[in-house]
Design a protein around this nucleic acid. Structure first.
Lengths: 340, 340
DNA sequence: TGTTTCTACGAAAACGTTTTCGGCTTTTTA
DNA sequence: TAAAAAGCCGAAAACGTTTTCGTAGAAACA
């Protein structure tokens, strides 16, 4: 078990000073070619690599990005992380991941811990509880310390930082129009409670599309689910209340459950009822029938977030106050759950 | 934008020495109650938190765990991470995640980068390429430096470290027996190429179960898939070759694709063909029909890995050479794809 | 009064780097 | 031959902590 080698040990073994070793390894012309080679050979032999903690302390940069998200066992978030990691790694950054588990308290603690020097900046999507509480002091504190944040998906208006989102209203709007063009006239949406902004915005787009076509929007066309755990019965009951011929779901899980429920009721998909889901994930691709979805490319969103954050980290900090909100394009992926 | 406050600044502002501030904040009796309070109030006011990088350097401990896995967009790995994160966080550790993308080179680079002081230990599952190459020098180097590794799922015999696995042979064996007890006589397995150990071991269990019952095992009962990307056709062709009444798949994806393929061929599940999949993930739960699976509890495996690693990190390093391989129990989750 | 014991604080080292500056030799130039 | 320049290297500071040790002054003791 050979302990990690340091500049100091090399210096001692080779009977030169630490500064000489450091310079030699960085190919400084201040050091003679002879000495340089001797040191390099020795360093190579013992596989010297500079200690990153020491570098972080010296440079006041960690080359690490903190990610705080509600859950990781969630296809969308997993793709976002994957996108972040890819870009970050290319640019020499590592990612540290903390999960809030949808809890405000954990989000705050995690941010506190990471903000104490462990990372250079944050990429995050807020927990449900935070959205409900509307308490963002932890974000403001971090920003106030000069540490940049990039938010994605679950973002909030009041906070001044870069944001990566999809245009939920427009996407829901066009999905609704798509169904109407297919001749569907009695539409419903399975959404989340309003404090989750994506649910609220998607419902809004749905409503706008209906009204634009002069169709009636009533609240009973909307199911607002709070807890995804036991939503099967809720969805069952909701779908039985009327004879819908088109359903939009704000995520694939709701869509799959709705699909099963409808099949149980003897309806066939897409002939009797067409279904469109948000999030083009693994479920949509392999459900029966496969689901038409609005794809929000998580990988792209993550990549963008990382790019933006790193840009800000590496620019000379004087470009303050030019925060941007990037709207990522969605794409409609047609599959079996909507008619040709 | 108030810069982060340090001991030095507090000391300067309050006209005391840095050591006094440090001691006061750690409630040392060496400092008078008066001074202590003054310092604490000031620190609280400016929200002082010790810089974790400085602590890491001083203590030679980062309180960070490095995770290297092939992919994160994969339900099983996501659950493992979730399990690791939970336990780690409870014990005051953060997790740094690197993805190898199934590439040997990336795995090596990632390990190198993290091993240079960024973390205290590794939890990892090897990339396919690494398994194929059978080159583990990067693992040995890290272990040799005294940095502990805990491997899970894709592990390798030759390396001396803690391991968390499921008993793939036994699990496949009992799944096969389960099908036979249901009266199925013509069984097949959809597996991976042999260098992926889970595929090899599960195939082995399948074979053993057949032979134990005096049934014939032939290689044509086995489909070995190398690349999951375009396996649909392979599976189609394989299933057409014989009239199987029971299929075991080494992951849910293969099972879902097989299920679709069989339905297309006009077979009904589970009446004509029963299916069992490894990995109890989201697909199994929501596919049509829902899949009977062998659950390998990723969350538990992750939690165990984290517990083991942290134990080793915090024990006084003298308990060397007592490496353990923990075998996590699997559970058969019965759903619609097998008969009652 | 002289010695010892507390009390309360500061100086400095250590963790592993990088970099600035200063200085000693040797070579070049006038 | 003396001065200037170049070549080569080391000392030290800095990043932010914690901790050991030293010490000044005050209080207690003889």
């Amino acid at each position: 078990m050979s302990q990690k080698i340091t500049l100091k040990k090399i210096a001692h073994d080779l009977k030169v000073s630490i500064s000489t070793v450091s310079k030699a390894l960085r190919d400084s012309h201040e050091i003679s070619v002879e000495t340089r080679n001797k040191i390099k050979v020795y360093a190579k032999k013992y596989n010297y690599k500079p200690n990153s903690i020491a570098l972080s302390l010296k440079n006041q940069k960690t080359k690490k990005i903190g990610i705080i998200i509600p859950e990781i066992v969630h296809h969308f978030f997993a793709t976002v992380i994957s996108g972040i990691e890819k870009v970050a790694n290319e640019k020499g950054y590592q990612v540290i991941i903390c999960l809030s588990g949808e809890s405000f308290a954990k989000e705050v603690v995690n941010m506190d811990v990471l903000a104490n020097g462990s990372i250079d900046g944050f990429i995050m999507s807020l927990s449900k509880e935070t959205m409900e509480k509307q308490d963002f002091h932890h974000l403001e504190e971090v920003l106030n310390q000069g540490m940049p944040i990039v938010m994605f998906d679950r973002v909030v208006e009041g906070i001044e930082c870069d944001k990566i989102i999809i245009d939920d209203v427009a996407a829901a709007h066009s999905a609704t129009e798509f169904l109407m063009r297919k001749g569907r006239k009695n539409l419903a949406i399975i959404s989340t409670v309003d404090y989750v902004n994506v649910g609220r915005l998607r419902t809004k787009g749905f409503k706008e599309a209906l009204e634009k076509r002069g169709m009636e929007f009533t609240e009973n066309r909307v199911l607002k689910i709070e807890n995804a755990e036991n939503c099967s019965k809720e969805i069952d009951d909701f779908l039985k209340k009327d004879d819908y011929d088109g359903v939009i779901a704000v995520n694939e899980l709701f869509a799959v459950i709705a699909s099963k429920s409808l099949k149980k009721m003897g309806k066939s998909i897409p002939e009797d009822v067409a279904i469109i889901a948000f999030t083009d994930g693994i479920l949509s691709k392999y459900a029966s029938p496969t689901l038409t979805t609005i794809g929000q490319n998580g990988e792209d969103m993550g990549g963008l977030a990382a790019t933006k954050l790193i840009e800000r980290l590496e620019s000379k900090e004087d470009v303050e106050e030019s925060y941007e909100t990037v709207i990522v394009k969605t794409s409609l992926v047609e599959r079996e759950s909507t008619p040709q």
